[in-house]
């Protein structure tokens, strides 16, 4: 088990290196230049000399290889440099937003997993009863509804209902408060986007749990467990669920990593200053350093989640440890 984990961790290095090369080259293949954007922003006409100065300042004129190794050397020391656009340290810029995105992702994952496993299992056990139909309706609706649209509905619902009940409309705070400063203010902001994204998330995972459970419940070893006279709850929890969890964990892992970097529209709807928004901004500004840092972060998150999923796999299924 230990060897397996070490091997998996070592595999992270080439993956990240590959991501680094790709993002570095692809960014520089996009036409346009951050200095042109910066200068043209003020009026459309810019001085050739100013452009040259700007490019020299940012070090864009040097050979690609030099730029690349300089950047990689920085990354290895966790020094991502400053944003080409704002000139502020990247660690600081990302740190501000990372907290918020992580909190939403964790909250959504936690609630979605709880909902998905309990609903999925119930639905599988009660296959083709009204409970099953209800759960399937719930999850189909969740998959069909984009989370940003659900977000808009939530905001409107909050405004209208508070207006009706308390006389004045209430809106979630826009300023981010860390959870350790004021948990109530924090949650009253973060819970809504978590709900909007978590619903879709739980719907996907519920369907996965249900179908995995249905498959496992038909296995021979479940019949053996029944023939042994075990209690039904032992059969479900110990014998069936442990086998059915594998595909569910995969889905949960992928969705979590996606939430960490891909919540662009939902963040827009809730007016949140998260990683997604920063990502879009830096790409459209040709902010090389910021985009590279963000891609590396998201790649790291994906790789780390995959690692956790694989370790969980090996823990759940003893056959995997030896493959």
């Amino acid at each position: 088990m230990f060897r397996y984990i070490v091997k998996r961790i070592l595999l992270v290095i080439p993956t990240l290196l590959g991501a680094a090369v790709l993002v570095f080259l692809l960014l520089r293949m996009i036409p346009g230049d951050i200095c042109e954007l910066k200068l043209a922003g003020t009026g459309g006409y810019f001085d050739k000399e100013a452009l040259a100065i700007c490019q020299k300042e940012l070090g864009l004129g040097r050979p690609l290889l030099v730029q690349f190794f300089e950047w990689i050397w920085g990354v290895m020391r966790f020094d991502f440099g400053v944003s080409m656009w704002t000139n502020r340290p990247i660690i600081e810029e990302i740190g501000l937003r990372f907290q918020l995105s992580l909190e939403i992702a964790l909250l959504a994952t936690f609630s979605a997993t709880l909902i998905a496993i309990s609903l999925g299992v119930t639905s599988a056990i009660k296959q083709d009863t009204w409970i099953d139909y209800l759960v399937r309706l719930f999850s189909i609706a969740g998959i069909a509804m984009p989370s940003f649209w659900l977000g808009i509905l939530i905001i409107l619902g909050l405004l209208i209902s508070t207006q009706a009940w308390f006389g004045e409309p209430w809106m979630m705070p826009i300023e981010y408060t860390p959870i350790w400063v004021d948990p109530i203010a924090n949650l009253s902001q973060v819970i809504w986007p978590a709900l909007a994204t978590g619903y879709r998330y739980s719907a996907v995972a519920t369907r996965m749990t249900r179908s995995a459970m249905l498959e496992v419940l038909r296995e021979d070893y479940i019949r053996t467990a029944r023939a042994k006279g075990l209690l039904e709850k032992v059969i479900i929890n110990r014998h069936a669920l442990k086998n059915a969890l594998l595909p569910v964990i995969t889905v949960i892992g992928i969705e979590f990593a996606f939430l960490m970097g891909g919540l662009v529209v939902t963040e827009q709807v809730f007016n949140l200053n998260g990683l997604g928004k920063l990502f879009v901004g830096s790409v459209s500004n040709n902010d090389y350093t910021m985009t590279q840092a963000l891609v590396m972060l998201v790649a790291l998150i994906f790789v780390a989640t995959n690692l956790v999923v694989d370790i969980l796999y090996a823990w759940l299924d003893p056959r995997i440890r030896y493959n």
Binding site: E219, D220, Y221
Partner: peptide
């Protein structure tokens, strides 16, 4: 081959 639970 299939009558015993593989994960227990």
């Amino acid at each position: 081959m299939t009558s015993l639970n593989p994960v227990l």
